[in-house]
């Protein structure tokens, strides 16, 4: 079929069945908007948890009276590890000073303390990408074997919680995307199926006149694409409206909301996603044409 004529047929049908098509567009837009909000949430949690590792460090307590050469050897050994970002030596005097500064309101705990009970230590910061639970556990085990290292301490529970939070959010996001994506395909499928049944006599006549399956299918696929793209554009407008009307106004009155990121480029895929889902639904609805 010449493409302009297929478009003419599709546009005529879109106009003729405007109410059912409008309803489909709004349903698809709602689905895509929910997907966008889920993505928006996951993105922000990813960004927030992505900043947490900057605070993470591993502390290696050293043996009492450890020699400077031993400390230097331990530092060198740690720096050779690919996961290590930086190593800082904390003499026990500095550690006590930091502790006193931290507990300045509870200074009585240091009363009667004749001797510094804290050991010398090494503070190890890790590279962001190395902050997996397993990798950190392995590094801790390796570090414990270094000469002069008495004990290794790190926030294992924090890492584990971070890991499960990320996995949980990604799973919820994935479930939402898959289920709502399937829902959108079903909406397009139903719409095109209804349009197809309504035009069944016309299609039968086309077949008898010698129309090929592609001649019959093309206008329906265009309709599916237009419905999907329209849904995508409406959802895009919806997510930007959410940004400008809700987020920006809230940020103005409550600064904490200004920390929320709005990945506007990420949402530009919505019309394309709508088109893909619309065409997929239409293609499934048309199935195999029988002659």
């Amino acid at each position: 079929m010449p493409a302009p004529y297929a478009f003419t047929l599709a546009l005529r049908s879109l106009f003729r069945e405007k109410w059912i098509n409008l309803l489909s567009v709004l349903t698809i837009a709602s689905g895509l908007l929910i997907i966008s909000l889920a993505l928006f949430t996951v993105y922000n949690i990813e960004a927030a948890t992505g900043r947490l590792p900057e605070q993470f460090s591993m502390i290696l307590y050293l043996d009492n009276g450890v020699q400077k050469e031993t400390v230097d050897g331990a530092v060198a050994a740690l720096r050779k590890q690919s996961a290590v970002l930086s190593v800082r030596y904390i003499p026990k005097e500095e550690a006590l000073k930091e502790l006193k500064a931290t507990l300045k309101n509870s200074g009585y705990v240091f009363e009667g303390l004749d001797e510094n009970p804290l050991p010398d230590a090494l503070e190890v910061r890790l590279k962001k990408e190395a902050l997996g639970e397993e990798a950190v556990r392995k590094l801790a085990a390796d570090a414990a074997k270094i000469k002069g290292v008495k004990e290794v301490d790190y926030a294992a529970k924090f890492l584990s919680a971070l890991h499960y939070l990320k996995v949980g959010m990604q799973t919820i996001g994935l479930i939402l995307i898959v289920s709502l994506g399937a829902g959108i395909i079903f909406v397009c499928y139903s719409t095109v199926k209804i349009l197809f049944y309504r035009r069944n006599d016309e299609i039968e006549t086309f077949k008898l006149l010698g129309a090929t399956p592609s001649f019959i299918r093309t206008p329906f696929l265009i309709e599916g694409a237009v419905i999907g793209v329209s849904g995508g554009v409406v959802s895009l407008a919806g997510i930007f409206a959410f940004h400008y009307i809700v987020l920006l106004r809230l940020s103005a009155s409550m600064p904490i909301f200004s920390m929320i990121l709005f990945p506007s480029r990420l949402f530009l895929f919505l019309p394309f996603a709508g088109m893909f889902l619309g065409v997929t639904g239409a293609a499934i609805a048309l199935g195999r044409l029988k002659y």
Partner: peptide, 13 residues
């Protein structure tokens, strides 16, 4: 089945 449309193009009904 794919040839049926082309047969029908030779027939006016």
């Amino acid at each position: 089945e794919s040839s049926i449309p082309f047969l029908r193009r030779n027939i006016g009904i």
